[in-house]
Design a protein around this nucleic acid. Structure first.
Lengths: 200, 200
DNA sequence: TTCCCTTACTGAACATTGTTAATTTTCTGA
DNA sequence: TCAGAAAATTAACAATGTTCAGTAAGGGAA
């Protein structure tokens, strides 16, 4: 009598297949070259079928945005075992930027593209973004307890640190660093993170 | 015998008209809603005509990008009379962010959108961006002479400061600041700039 | 097994986009 | 005035997201 359950399972499997296909295309050539027809070809169904599982293209990209965050959050957590709060914060920043470099399409979708922000604006609540922000605040709070950020408001510190790493990541991803030679990018980023420590 | 000259003038006037029309549409509803046909309607010519004056849509947006920079550079220069290097740098940052808030579409086109970066990549040289970057470096150098940024590399400092303000601007423009209430945005930005001063 | 209703899927069609090229209109200089 | 050049138009093309009438498949009851 598991007919209903099987139906459910098939439904999620199909959604899964669509998302995987979209992700594949998207990682290969960037998300603005992904078309509904290409996705349909990839899963070997017709275009119309996709619309039985997703309201529209935005919804697909919003789901991919969520997957990006899942992977991102893993990476973020991997530095949490570092004892020294200062070191941990900088490692946190490095991991952030490294994610942007390794997974530029994901980063773009999560923090730059307008595509998912329309979806986000509907519920007026960006769960994934907030979770990341909270982790950052946690690490800053612990650094504060260790004597850093004297006289600095927690919100201000979190906003500043996030803006800083996001600025680096998004200038890189959207190709606005032509004036710095590629080979000096890495030391520049490391230097910038060291520089920011002076404000801690 | 000024026929040739008149032709030239008419040509630039037409380009001008097209750019103005594009700018109008673009400021009203955002650049991704601007279509060639809407521009054509606006200037009361047919679509094809636009292609006699611009190679393609990218070229139009690249020109708008240049205009954005002209306005931007004006604003940037307006803080150059401030004597104190520290104050001047922070005013520089404030002016940067204020431009992004006042002219979000321009800022987006100049520093975020992929549209003009394709055009930029052709000559492999981003004149407008470099000019801005040089002004920033000038101000940092003068702050260094006044004793700030001890032991910091000029390139690192410039990269850091730019990333910082760009991070703020682009998170704002691309709607990724849902977790901060609108009313606290202004003090947050001011606080962030003050916070960064600690690293100077 | 057979029948029928629900569910799943298809694919042609639509409107909108940037871009092109053949055609028509306008201008210009002898 | 008129032929050649320049400017402008318009229909067309391919690609896009999305919809919907039609077709196929599935599954429970007789």
């Amino acid at each position: 009598m598991g007919a209903k359950e099987r139906k459910e399972r098939q439904k999620t499997e199909m959604r899964e297949a669509i998302l995987s296909a979209a992700l594949k295309l998207f990682s290969d050539d960037g998300y603005d070259t992904v078309t509904m027809r290409k996705i349909a070809d990839e899963i070997e169904y017709s275009v119309g079928t996709i619309y039985l599982y997703f309201r529209d293209k935005n919804e697909i990209f919003f789901e991919l945005h969520n997957r990006g965050f899942a992977e991102f959050f893993q990476k973020q957590l991997s530095v949490q075992n570092i004892e020294n709060p200062l070191e941990r914060l900088t490692a946190h920043g490095t991991a952030y930027i490294q994610f942007a470099i390794d997974r530029p399409e994901y980063y773009d979708l999560m923090f730059i593209s307008r595509t998912p922000s329309k979806e986000i604006n509907k519920n007026k609540h960006w769960t994934e973004g907030e979770r990341t922000y909270d982790l950052l605040k946690l690490n800053i709070r612990q650094a504060m307890e260790a004597g850093y950020f004297k006289g600095v408001d927690l919100e201000v510190a979190a906003f500043s640190l996030w803006s800083f790493v996001h600025g680096i990541a998004s200038l890189f991803i959207r190709d606005r660093l032509m004036m710095v030679p590629v080979e000096s990018l890495k030391p520049l980023v490391a230097g910038a993170l060291k520089f920011l420590e002076r404000a801690y």
